[in-house]
Design a protein around this nucleic acid. Structure first.
Lengths: 106, 106
DNA sequence: GACTAATATGAGCATATACGCATATAGTTG
DNA sequence: CAACTATATGCGTATATGCTCATATTAGTC
């Protein structure tokens, strides 16, 4: 059964949220566990403003969760499917390169 | 071990390729099996030019394969991980809505 | 070779969004 | 309340990309 137009839009938006290197870097950093904004700024190498915006995007998409504690805000992976998504894509890309290497190697 | 910047770019691009509703519609149509461009134009409801462009994007990303047969060009799913990717995202979105419904329902 | 059919592509436009800069808001401490 | 810290946001700009229209290319047919 095909997905409706609305469903396709949602799925597309979901992928779009994951389609930015900086956001992937943040997600990757959070694989280690919950972190506050400043820690994410440091580890990602981005500007505070930009990181804040990306975190907002990820949170609105329910990829991350947000927890306020005094002055700080802690973010964490909220959607466990993210782990498998990233694994799948990485695996697929690896296969692609392996094939490429085989072709190049003869 | 964190991914390199280059790897993150590749993963992001991979997600970006899947971040368009029209491309998802094409992929979904191809779940049934190989189809030529015209069939995809009809089923997707898009213009011939636009569909051709999207097919190019998907092929360059190695998501689809391309087979020429006379005047026609047949496209098919080349990367099997696409199935699981879509399943994962759909499942995750369903969970989100279920949760939402629970909250709304009390 | 002229004509037709199937697909691809060039050009231009409209929209989305990532980023930087500056500033606003929320919370803490003196 | 003033000063400070941590995070968020308004605004402008640059870039990317999806779409359309027209046309090019490729391949088959008479």
């Amino acid at each position: 059964m095909p997905l409706s137009d609305d469903a396709l839009e949602l799925v597309a938006r979901r992928f779009a949220v994951l389609a930015e290197p900086m956001r992937l870097r943040l997600i990757q950093a959070l694989f280690e566990g919950e972190k506050n904004v400043n820690a994410l700024v440091v580890v990602s190498g981005g500007s505070q403003a930009n990181i804040s915006r990306h975190l907002q995007t990820l949170t609105q998409a329910h990829v991350l969760s947000r927890r306020k504690e005094g002055l700080q805000v802690f973010y964490a992976i909220a959607d466990p499917s993210i782990y498998k998504l990233c694994e799948l894509v990485c695996g697929s890309l690896e296969k692609q390169f392996t094939k490429h290497a085989e072709v190049l190697g003869g």
